[in-house]
Amino acid sequence: MKPGLLTTSAELSKTDPRVKLIAAKIKKENARPEALIEILHTAQNAYGYLPMNVLSYITHSLHLPPSRVYAAVTFYHFFSLKSKGEHTCLVCTGTACYVKGAQAILHELEKQFGIKAGHVTADQKLGIQVARCVGACGLAPVVVLDDVVEAKVNADQIIQEIRAKIS
């Protein structure tokens, strides 16, 4: 095996509370390989994304092949290998929101902040994402701003709120 590719927890600070959290989760699950997704959830929640050294750490702890872990991570939309930005604006483009003009809101946001959905601004302040349905169809169109669901929104109002957050 070539050195340096499967980094261990050495690169992670043992005192980092996030690392402790993941370590505790792995212990709770008895390092069972089938608990991979549960453990990835913990890591994703702790970091907001899955840094490569964290993935390496999990891979090692569960004795899984790296390819198997990477395959699972890239399959599920919930997991991200890139930072999602300091603030996130998630536009629901589910059917109900779509019928009520979510696309226009998304286009306006993309135009205003100069990034496409799925990307983060150069200063890492804002990430725009789309969801296929957040399940709040009765309140369409819906935007989730930093985990707060905003109902029956219009583009101007959301843009103002974002500006207030990132300025």
């Binding site: 589910g94 109900a96 779509y98 296929r132 349905c133 399940g135």
Partner: peptide
């Protein structure tokens, strides 16, 4: 795993 966009019965 209610994934259909526009469905929120199970939720």
């Amino acid at each position: 795993d209610e994934g259909d966009p526009g469905a929120f019965m199970d939720r």
